[in-house]
C-alpha cells in the first residue's frame, strides 16, 4: 500500500478578529481597548486521502471548507496540527510541492483579467516548465474537449462565466498536477456548462488517476464525481465515508411520491405507517418506504388508488444533506466508518 497522498492530523486554524461597537463611540473605544474574538475555522481535523481518490468535501457556508483548502494548498499556515501532502508540508511553500498541485476556484479568477487566456497559458507553461510539445498537445486536447479553442485569443474579461471557468480549468491542469483542489468549480454556471465541466473532470481523472478534492453545493457534482464524502460542520469533521452509506444515514427508507386523479382520505391506516406528507387538496402524497418494500408497496398503491403519476427520489443525498445542515446533531449519534 502506498503512503497516503494527503494526511492531516489534528489540523486546526484559529482566526482572531476584534469586536467593535457601531458608531464613532465604538471606533474610539475600540482604538484603546480591543476585544479579541477567537474562532476556530477548522478544529482538530483528521483526514487521510489515498492516490487516485476523488473526495467530496461538503458543508454549509462558513463551515471551514475553504479554510481547509487554503491550508492544503499552502496559502495559509495552520495554527496547530500536522499536514503532509505528497511528502511536503504545504505551509513551507516548497517549489517542488507547488509544481505537484493545482487549485481551481469558481469564485475567483486566476487568469489575468486584461489579457487573452493564451498569454496566461504561456506564462504558466514557463512557470511549470512544460515542454513546448507537451504544452501544444495539452492545449489542443483540452481545448477541443471543452470546445473553447476559439476563445484562446479573446480578452478574459470579455468572456462569459462558463467560458472563463473552462479556461481556468485548463490553466490549472497544464502542468499535469498530482493533486487537484476544486473549490466550487461549477458555481453560478448554467446546467449545460456544469455538466461539461463535470464530464471533463471525470474524464481527466480516469485518464490520469490524479487525486481530486472537490467542494461544491451542487449534489449533482458530488454524485457524478465522488465515491467518498467528507463533511465539515463548524470546523469539525462530521462524516467521512462512502457516498452510498451517506445516503442511508437517515435510515434505509426511500421517498416515493404519488399523484392521484382526485382527493384521497388522508386518515386511512394504510398511509399512516409510511409517514405521509400530503398536499393541501390531498391529491399528492410523499411517503417513506423501507428500501426492500418499495416494489410491493408500489404495486399495491397502483392497484388500489387512482394514480396518475409517481416518482421515487432521484437524489436521496440532497435530502440527507439538507436534513443534516438543518440539524447537524444527527451526526453525533452516527458512527463514522
Amino acid at each position: 500500500m502506498n503512503a497516503p497522498v494527503i494526511r492531516a492530523d489534528k489540523l486546526s486554524k484559529k482566526f482572531i478578529s476584534y469586536k467593535k461597537a457601531p458608531g464613532i463611540k465604538g471606533t474610539v473605544s475600540s482604538f484603546f481597548k480591543r476585544k479579541p474574538i477567537e474562532k476556530y475555522a477548522v478544529n482538530n481535523f483528521d483526514l487521510t486521502i489515498n492516490k487516485g481518490e476523488i473526495i467530496g468535501l461538503l458543508g454549509p457556508n462558513g463551515a471551514g471548507k475553504t479554510t481547509l483548502m487554503k491550508m492544503f494548498t499552502g496559502i495559509i499556515v495552520p495554527s496547530t496540527g500536522e499536514l503532509n501532502i505528497l511528502g511536503h508540508r504545504p505551509s513551507d511553500r516548497n517549489l517542488d510541492f507547488r509544481r505537484k498541485i493545482a487549485l481551481v476556484m469558481g469564485q475567483k479568477s486566476q487568469l489575468w483579467w486584461d489579457i487573452p487566456a493564451m498569454d496566461s497559458f504561456l506564462l504558466l507553461q514557463k512557470y511549470y516548465e512544460v515542454s513546448e510539445q507537451n504544452f501544444k498537445e495539452r492545449i489542443e486536447e483540452m481545448g477541443t474537449i471543452l470546445n473553447v479553442t476559439s476563445l484562446f485569443h479573446i480578452h478574459v474579461r470579455k468572456l462569459s462565466l462558463g467560458e472563463r471557468m473552462k479556461l481556468e480549468l485548463m490553466a490549472s491542469l497544464l502542468h499535469n498536477p498530482e493533486v487537484i483542489f476544486l473549490d466550487e468549480p461549477t458555481i453560478g454556471l448554467d446546467l449545460v456548462a456544469q455538466e461539461n465541466i463535470r464530464n471533463f473532470v471525470k474524464r481527466y481523472h480516469e485518464k490520469t488517476n490524479c487525486t481530486l478534492i472537490l467542494t461544491s453545493h451542487y449534489m449533482q457534482d458530488v454524485l457524478a464525481l465522488c465515491k467518498r464524502l467528507v463533511l465539515i460542520f463548524d470546523g469539525k469533521k462530521g462524516y467521512d465515508g462512502a457516498i452510498g452509506d451517506f445516503e442511508k444515514i437517515l435510515g434505509n427508507n426511500k421517498t416515493v411520491n404519488f399523484n392521484f386523479s382526485n382527493s384521497q382520505n388522508i386518515e386511512e391506516d394504510f398511509w399512516k405507517q409510511y409517514n405521509p406528507l400530503w398536499n393541501e387538496d390531498s391529491t399528492q402524497v410523499e411517503i417513506q418506504v423501507p428500501e426492500d418494500e418499495v416494489r410491493a408497496v408500489g404495486l399495491e398503491v397502483l392497484k388500489k388508488y387512482p394514480i396518475t403519476d409517481f416518482q421515487t427520489e432521484k437524489m436521496p443525498i440532497e435530502r440527507v444533506m439538507k436534513t443534516l445542515m438543518e440539524n447537524p446533531d444527527i451526526l453525533r449519534n452516527q458512527k463514522t466508518p
Binding site: 489575468w112 486584461d114 489579457i115 506564462l123 514557463k126 512557470y127
Partner: peptide
C-alpha cells in the same frame, strides 16, 4: 535557462497588462 524564461515571460505579460488601458 528555464528560470530566466519564467522572468522573461512575466516581463512580457506584465508589459501587456501595464499597457492594456493605454
Amino acid at each position: 535557462k528555464n528560470y530566466w524564461l519564467k522572468w522573461w515571460q512575466t516581463i512580457k505579460v506584465t508589459w501587456v497588462k501595464h499597457t492594456a488601458y493605454r
